[in-house]
Write a protein that binds this DNA or RNA. Sequence first.
DNA 1: TGTTTTTTGTTCTCCTTTTGTTCCATTTTA
DNA 2: TAAAATGGAACAAAAGGAGAACAAAAAACA
Lengths: 208, 208
Amino acid sequence: MLTPKQHKLFQFIEKTLTEKGVSPSFEEMKAYMGLKSKSGIHRLVSSLESKGFIRHLPNQARALEIVPRQNNIAAFYPIANDDSVSIPLVGKIAAGYPIEAVRTQDTVSVPPQMMGMGEHYALTVEGDSMQGVGIMDGDTVIIKRADRAPDGTIVVALVDGFEVTLKRLHTRGHSVALEPANPAYQTRIFSADRVEVQGILVGLMRQY
Amino acid sequence: MLTPKQHKLFQFIEKTLTEKGVSPSFEEMKAYMGLKSKSGIHRLVSSLESKGFIRHLPNQARALEIVPRQNNIAAFYPIANDDSVSIPLVGKIAAGYPIEAVRTQDTVSVPPQMMGMGEHYALTVEGDSMQGVGIMDGDTVIIKRADRAPDGTIVVALVDGFEVTLKRLHTRGHSVALEPANPAYQTRIFSADRVEVQGILVGLMRQY
DNA sequence: TGTTTTTTGTTCTCCTTTTGTTCCATTTTA
DNA sequence: TAAAATGGAACAAAAGGAGAACAAAAAACA
């Protein structure tokens, strides 16, 4: 994930922040890293930021902050702490593989009000096919495991056993329609036996 | 994040407040910081306030107070853990009143990875003016308190002291543009002194 | 109670220092 | 030798200090 230098700098930032309560200046980081120019630091900081490890406000002095990390709890069922819940982040949707195949160790913590009973998991949205209802590329969606769903709800559907998508479900007799929310995509209609509902969309989270 | 001087002053204020129960006067802070003029203190106090570390009542003597921090977020460094943190849900945006005026007792719990340092609050989105970037009517947005923002970020802005909106901010010299993300709405341009930034959008949550 | 004095906070201008950003030439590395 | 990393300088912006004049609040006084 991080290059050795990025890692070294990240640890320095982290240490300075905890010990002194003040984020290091570019000059200080330059000295620590043994560089002769601040421009190198600027590059390292930018990459740390684009990888999501730190945040920083442009043109502000000593304005780095560490992005809080999740503990990696490998668990399938929700773990209830006092007031919060971690659920597994199982992968990206629209990646073209069944969800079972891409389970990871990642978890994401979710506000409890977003979940009801049952088993939940999270997915990262890829693509813009549900843009019209405010589900954007990169969003994290919270899914409640279910094998059927009310008409008109947004579901995770497995088509022909290998393609997973997030679409609005419409049932018409023996066929089901998977309807995107983007005029650039078409509604696809399948016979009921080709589509397996894997979960119902119950929540969405996004970070800026 | 704080600069060394801001940090030093903040600790002094905190210490004085806990030990003596009264906040230090500008004169006392001036002496502690080794300055010859109060204006520098005023600057530091303002920065601490705009960064959300303290609060103060204008034109009142010894009226500083420390902004309470979340239990699981340390003063200067967010601790990684799985607990959600609760932040106040202060009302609806686009409701037409300054945020300060509509504080409620409601809170909403938020996954920690969504927040960094500083004070955060949540708002319920009303209207469709930011639909284009996936911010829909009824969504809950997480806002970090700030009084300025990098160009191009989405902010909570108070216009003419009474109208609050969530829009993308663009600064052009002495005027600011508040840009919606919906072709049905127009970008509005104001002189800088009519617009007050109240916070920066850092996260979004939605329940289905 | 109303008026003056004192304390305290605010604002402004001018200035220096610190810090972050950018761009391009150069070196190093694979 | 192409790609990646570094150096260096110029620049831009933010942070902060001094000093004075001013405004508001609190305290003292009559």
